[in-house]
Design a protein around this nucleic acid. Structure first.
Lengths: 325, 325
DNA sequence: TTCAATATGTCAATCGTTTGACATAAAAAA
DNA sequence: TTTTTTATGTCAAACGATTGACATATTGAA
């Protein structure tokens, strides 16, 4: 690979001059500028970003830790994050923690070693303190960690309310909520909270089941749901904490010959792209994934540039009513 | 951030010694090793991987260019690629080209500038020559570019045959195939080829529609499919070139009151995780995504290490018969 | 006692770029 | 003609590590 020296030699100038045209500083005549460009062209020269990073102590890299990019919600989130990062010259390193505490830690160390400019955390199993002394531009999804670290979330409570309210309003008599693991202390837990409060308030019978800790694997959903429907065959409304869970529910309902929405109504959460393609199309609570992704990138950049930023970034959700309710 | 010098100072040794314990070379007594470790601990020292990369001229970085990580197939692929890369100490930079020729090129330049050790290309719009003089460890998905560049694909022809054969065998009289854009010269085109050949061979009426060039956006699918069904209302079998397309078909069928599989049978391609959750669960051609991802990482590493590797890596597919046929 | 093995240090170059300080020369403006 | 401005060059340090060559000191074994 050619270096700046090769370019200088070929163009008949010094590396200082090449650097000057490369970085647009100082005086440069058009003639030499052209000579330099031509030499770069000829050699197919690409400035070594590693050397640059080393020197300027900025890598233009953002680390993204999520459970897994193969989950539709996180896939979409990652897609938008990369999109907005790329717009402003940042690259993104993906890390799939699989909600494994050890991997999460490993990834954080790795990202620090690689001197990423900031870390976007969409996966949370670690103790709060471990983040605290991270001393790094960070933004978290769905988790409040300390007074300083900014976080992004959807209006979980509002979403939970919208979903639960819809079920009640549609005449459900006994409703269930399937949530992620509640020990994880995520802000998503507020969805459950809203569910509980609202059903109590309306005197509606309700049950909650949650997924196991550390199990992101999707296979357990099925057993969980079948179990739920066996124990409570009279459930006629379900609020699932993600569209993927809702998909399981729809399917199991189909196999169990429960008509949707006639026998059981279902509301999901996220509004992943495929939600509208389910049969029947899924009623769900839409998180503004794109806006949240954009915000995450912005929060990192603001911290890098030492600009002021909001600590609380709660995005409004929207009820997307389709045909499962 | 502390440097190796700070560690040396605190441990009361020279940087050479610290480097020696860091890299396990030369003689080191247990005592000093401990002193050094302790100093690293105390300072919360993380060796600067950027400096290391610069020195060893290896970044331990793999670039991954795909249309978008938010597409389930590529999301799953990316997930596995990151998984296997991480196992052997590689990191992955994701690039979502959105099948945009300009972005694709930009990303390649960017990845080269960042001196990634290799590039995995799952997005192809560029001219072949542009890759040829890339002179870089590369592996492509679903495209044969030159004599030297290794590629990975599923047995597209076999898959197309399996799908088409199934439809015919199930008694379909007029079958359709929805494919990606055929101008892209992907090996995936062999699916269409198999479809055409087999339907001709069996004397079955058939139609093919393909998506537009450069449009990865999913929204066009719907119009396309509705259009197809309007023009050919007597279609009773469909082979979709991806599970996402199949999902559209299932849904539109649902809205048009065509029963699946009674009125129309559908076969997808990929076997994304959600395919089994469709209603009815989708019959599809399974690509061994995980194995393909693993293979991609391996091919990069082998090229980096100058070990021998296979140029052709065609993976067997499998018919997963569920309930849409 | 002597030699080899072990343990550490010193020094400096290298990876590829940026940048500041300074010098010099040509072109343009006064 | 003199002074500025513009254009380039020279030199060297810095970013944070690794590494080779060599020196020296302490052990332990023969």
């Amino acid at each position: 690979m050619p270096t700046i020296k090769d370019v200088a030699r070929l163009a008949g100038v010094t590396v200082t001059t090449v650097s000057r045209v490369l970085n647009n500083r100082g005086y440069i005549s058009d003639a030499t500028r052209q000579k330099v460009y031509q030499a770069m062209e000829e050699l197919n020269y690409q400035p070594n970003e590693i050397a640059r990073s080393l020197h300027r102590r900025k890598s233009k890299l953002i680390g993204l830790i999520i459970p897994t990019v193969s989950h539709p919600f996180f896939g979409e989130l990652a897609g938008f994050i990369e999109y907005y990062a790329h717009l402003i010259g940042y690259k993104v390193l993906i890390c799939n923690s699989l909600l494994d505490r050890k991997k999460e830690k490993e990834y954080i160390e790795m990202l620090k070693s690689n001197r990423v400019d900031g870390i976007i955390m969409g996966s949370h199993t670690l103790e709060v303190e471990e983040y605290m002394n991270l001393n790094y531009p960070i933004v978290t999804f769905d988790r409040r960690i300390s007074e300083e670290i900014p976080y992004i979330s959807s209006d979980n409570y509002g979403g939970g309310k919208l979903a639960t309210h819809l079920l009640i309003q549609k005449g459900c008599k006994k409703i269930a909520h399937i949530s992620g693991n509640l020990q994880l202390q995520l802000l998503a837990n507020k969805r459950s909270q809203a569910f509980i409060e609202l059903s109590k308030e309306h005197g509606i019978e309700s049950v909650i089941v949650e997924t196991e800790l550390n199990v992101f694997d999707i296979t357990q959903y099925e057993a969980m749901i079948r179990n739920l429907l066996e124990k409570h065959p009279d459930i006629d409304g379900v609020f699932a904490s993600s569209d993927v869970m809702a998909a399981y529910f729809i399917q199991i309902g189909y196999f169990l010959n429960r008509r949707i929405p006639e026998d059981i109504k279902i509301v999901g959460y996220d509004d992943i792209k495929l939600a509208s393609l389910f049969v029947p199309p899924l009623t769900t609570i839409r998180q503004p994934i794109e806006e949240m992704a954009k915000c995450a990138v912005e929060l990192i950049v603001r911290q890098v540039n030492e600009e002021p930023f909001e600590r609380e970034n709660v995005f409004p959700v929207e009820l997307i009513e389709r045909l499962t309710t």
